[in-house]
Design a protein around this nucleic acid. Structure first.
Lengths: 262, 262
DNA sequence: TACCGTACAGAACAGCGTTCGATAAACGAA
DNA sequence: TTCGTTTATCGAACGCTGTTCTGTACGGTA
């Protein structure tokens, strides 16, 4: 119920937290207490998430990794939600770096395609990402930057502002959706490598085959495709469908469907 | 680490659980103990989720609603994850009902569109859904049915099996992605109606305007569109992009890109 | 009656996010 | 140097969670 009384440690110095701390001065001389930084906290959180998934990220486990106490984390982050938001946004930093060179090409849609693929690749193996993108505009600046970068490409197309807005949102939503879908397919032990992925796919295929053909004709129709498919390839196939539609929309420049575009 | 020792109450009678219980015989005569059923448990879980979101669903709150004890729920469900999976799948029952009449139309893609929209409408106001679709094939039969129903329409198109498989996956992923995206936009108090939605949108618009124009040209470009847009409309816009691409792919029936299609 | 499988109940447990007061270090002012 | 204040760290403690476990009531069968 307390919305923002401004008295929690994390909100006492909201601005000074970013980019502070002398992280890494751990073993210097006779230091007794550990020293952290927002970057270190978020980085270790991501590492923990990558290793053991969302349930693996606990304040106690994170504190142990940082070599400090539980309470210290709350100096940098005011809740677990904020920690997850920052963790999600931090992986987008890589996406931004890898798409930094884009924007100079002749074909805007090809550039969008590259951005979406880079975004997708960052989500591979990170099922925890899907639910935390673009929640808080204040802390998640990388998400906004990626959104805007993609938007700048769409602006080069002959489209309504509304169409541009819709297009970027659609591509981003599709990437998030694929990430959410795929993150859940392996039940639990496949991600850790305990069970062979091939064996898992095979057992799922058999599960599909065991279904009644009359009830599930399509699943029987594509069961072999399922067993042989590659996730990244399938992502690109769906992305290309959407981008083909976008290209079609941009190509048919009938002025009557457009409003004032500048 | 214990994978499946088969000794937990919920796995003692795995088959008999479905569709059993005499749910509703609560106040009959001198009954002392409450009587549940899997359907009642899942239905109350969905109600709880709709009212107070994912954190609102606790075993204690659910037990209180059912008028029983915490332990009883474990007779029908072996974990909270399974409860969420069943809850997510149960809302798809409505989608199936509302798309039952589809499949007879001349245009398969139009039918797919209707199914996707029905799916989307079921996710509106249910941000908790996104993460739990199509996890377990065994318990989540409605998801499979919807997937197959959409697949039957795609089968009518002149496409490779692979293309058919990719198309259905893409549309489903897009719906899930939009649901995941939109579920998180209202921070917390908007969904409960404490804060006006219009006021929230306005403050977010101002937040966007406060950003540097040079850093975020696109966001400034579409900020008015954002303030005026309708979520459902935007969903349909993105869906139509994807379906336009699909129509294009189905129309260009160059036999060389296709394999044996029957 | 005795019995047995089904179903419900609630205390108990370990672990979680979060709060809080204590406290150590850093730093400018006196 | 000494002091006072700010910055940062620490871990015990709280309330709540999912889950387990033990006990027990019910309905049918013999």
């Amino acid at each position: 119920m307390t919305t923002d009384d401004g008295m929690s440690p994390a909100s006492q110095t909201p601005a000074s937290r970013a980019g502070r701390g002398r992280g890494g001065g751990r073993g210097a001389a006779g230091r007794q207490r550990a020293s952290h930084s927002l970057e270190a906290v978020v980085a270790e959180a991501v590492a923990l998430l990558d290793e053991s998934g969302e349930p693996g990220l606990t304040f106690r486990a994170l504190a142990a990794r940082l070599g400090g106490g539980v309470g210290s984390i709350y100096w940098y982050v005011s809740s677990k939600d904020e920690l997850l938001e920052r963790a999600a946004d931090s992986v987008l930093a890589d996406v931004l770096a890898k798409t930094d060179h884009l924007g100079a090409g002749d074909d805007p849609i090809a550039e969008i395609r590259e951005m979406a693929i880079a975004f997708y690749e960052a989500t591979v193996g990170r099922p925890w990402l899907g639910a935390y993108f673009l929640q808080d505009t204040g802390t998640q600046t990388n998400g906004l930057m990626l959104y805007d970068r993609m938007g700048r490409e769409v602006m080069r197309l002959d489209l309504t502002r509304r169409q541009q807005f819709d297009a970027v949102s659609a591509v981003m939503a599709y990437v998030v959706g694929v990430a959410a879908d795929r993150g859940q397919d392996p039940p639990q032990e496949v991600r850790d490598g305990i069970v062979d992925r091939g064996a898992f796919v095979a057992s799922f295929r058999d599960e599909l085959r065991a279904l009644d053909v009359d009830d599930f004709p399509f699943l029987h129709h594509i069961v072999d495709e399922f067993a042989a498919h590659d996730d990244a390839e399938q992502f690109r196939a769906g992305l290309d469908l959407m981008l083909a539609g976008l290209r079609l929309q941009a190509g048919s420049s009938s002025a009557d469907t457009r409003a004032a575009s500048d």
